[in-house]
Structure formats: structure tokens, C-alpha cells
Amino acid sequence: MTGSPILEVRGLKVSVAAQPETHIVRGVDLQVNAGEVHALMGPNGSGKSTLASTIAGSPAYKVDEGTILYKGEDITKWRPDERARAGMFLSFQYPTPIPGVTMVNLLRSALQARRGAEVPAREFIAEMRSTLAQLKMDESFARRYVNDGFSGGEKKRAEILQMGMLKPDLAILDETDSGLDVDALRTVAEGVNELKRPDMGILIITHYERILDYIKPDFVHVLVSGRIVRSGDFELAKQIERTGYDPILQELGITRTEEAVAP
């Protein structure tokens, strides 16, 4: 039951914009179709977050080679806001605090941008309430400043709230599990499952397997030194949970120290 392609990454090579010699992603091919959940795993520093940010259009990174297709269209040169309006969503690993801007303000502006039209206040409030309820979040949350003084769990839930309002066709969840205790992780993962639609693709970036116990991936990829070195199904994630990344690294002839040094 494979749907049409949502995301196609082809031969992607990425460096740091401010340091062009620092090559982080070194040739990645990846396809996420509608209805699929992909997990991208890998040790620290393997380029997972860089890949996620690059797909979302972060100006901090520069695409040296390759293309990114979204719903069949080459978006490699699109601005981040154009990608977002087209239905791409990045849940940040470290959501940025924005003091003085309430969640309500951000959500309303973002929703208007996504729809390309004014969203009447009443309609907006109704949608926000139902999304908050769906994610079992208190309404007072929406009146707080974006990510300002939020706990780790609150930050991640705020990301999922935005995802719920914006109804993306591609959701990239960058280390959504990091910094969460088991209860917070379950809440956030349940939120993602609530928001999952058959016509959307999900790419979960994670270091650990545990979030995948809640959001079952159809495909698992292992990124090492900027390349996907293994792809498989959920069993691959479970294997990593049991043995860590070392056996894979050893098989590839990479030692931990090299891995840490390799950009």
C-alpha cells in the first residue's frame, strides 16, 4: 500500500554554510512515500540533524550536490517558508525560545501563512482548542511565550501542537525524544500517532530506539559519517537497541574515535 512519493532525497551532499570545508552529509538517497514512517538513526555527529535541517531549508547549511524533491518537485533552492507553506514541517531538536510572542500569535500567523488566507479568529480558536484537546494539553499553554521557560517535555509538545495545527504532508521529527522522560515521551508519541494521516510521510530522527516503540517505523535507516550505511525494517532498530552502533561501525571499519573526529 505504498503511496505517492512525498520526499525524495537524491545524492545529497551538504556542508556548513559558514565553513564550506566541513562536509557533513556525504551522499544520501532517501525516499519517503505517503503513509510511510521512516526512522533515521545514527550515532551522535553522524549528520542526522543536518540532514533534517537541510530538508527544511536551513540557511545554516549549503547543498553542495544532489537534489531534494517534495511531492515530485525540486525544492532544493526553496526558502524555508516556501517549504513550510507547501506542507513540510520540522519539529526542532532544540526549539528556539521567542520571548514576547505567544503560542497563539505564532500559531495564528503560521496557520494563515500555511493556508494563504486570513483565518477568522473564531475558527482559529475552535481549531486550536480541539487540537489542544486532542493532544491532552491545557489551554493556558497557548498563552505562554513560545518555548520561553518551557521544560524539555513542554517544548516538544509545543512542536507537536504546531504540527497538529499546520497539518503537514511531511513531518520531520528531529530528536523529538531527546530530553524526555518516559511519560513525556509517551505523551508526545501518542500525539504524533493522533496526528498521523494516511496521506502524509513521517521522518523520525533519533539516536535511540525507544520512541519507535510508540511510533512504529516502516523503514529504518542508519546514518554514519553522513551516509546511510544500512536500511531495514523495525528489526534493525531493535538490533541497535540491543547492541548499539558498535557492531555496524566495526563492520564498516570505523572506530568510535574516528567517528567522533570525522565531520
Binding site: 527544511a56 524555508p80 517558508d81 528556539t96
Partner: peptide, 9 residues
């Protein structure tokens, strides 16, 4: 970037 990634130009 955070704001832009939410669709705001």
C-alpha cells in the same frame, strides 16, 4: 529560521 520553518516569510 524557526519562524520561517512555520511558513512565515
Amino acid at each position: 529560521f524557526y519562524m520561517q520553518s512555520r511558513g512565515l516569510d
